[in-house]
Amino acid sequence: MLTGAVLRLAMAVLIASGAWVLWKMLGSSMVARAGTLENSAAGVPSTGFVKGKPGLIVFGSTACAACVHVQNPAAQRLEAAMGGTIQVVHVDVDDQPSMAGRFGIMSLPTVFILDATATVRRVNHGLVSHDELKRQLSPYLAP
């Protein structure tokens, strides 16, 4: 029985590791897909994020309670605390469904971290705290 349990434990670790790798690959895939935001051409929807400052793009919805009451305030607190060194753009997926499709949004809220060249660097699926956002942005802030 002990041998069986050890074998199953090894299988469990393998499955968990595989799932973690797949999850990381999904995140990397979304980041690569989002790429660098180009300046919008006429008629092309824009997130409003402009080159020159790192920041966040927060995808949410007025119908998503966690977005309205937790994620948005966390992002706003961060913006206030960082002064003018970052930008925070909010995208309502109900108002801009094509933008949600372009970024491959699967769930709400979803928060992208972008550097000053408007290149997507990280993606967070679900709620992410003010402190974690600050930590994720720190490599892209001007010295």
Binding site: A16, S107, G126
Partner: peptide, 23 residues
């Protein structure tokens, strides 16, 4: 286990995901 882990460790809510997709 995987869905609960995604929620607990990555903040990804499967219920929220389904809600959003159905919407």
């Amino acid at each position: 286990i995987v869905l609960a882990s995604l929620n607990a460790f990555a903040g990804f809510c499967a219920g929220c995901f389904v809600y959003y997709q159905l919407a």
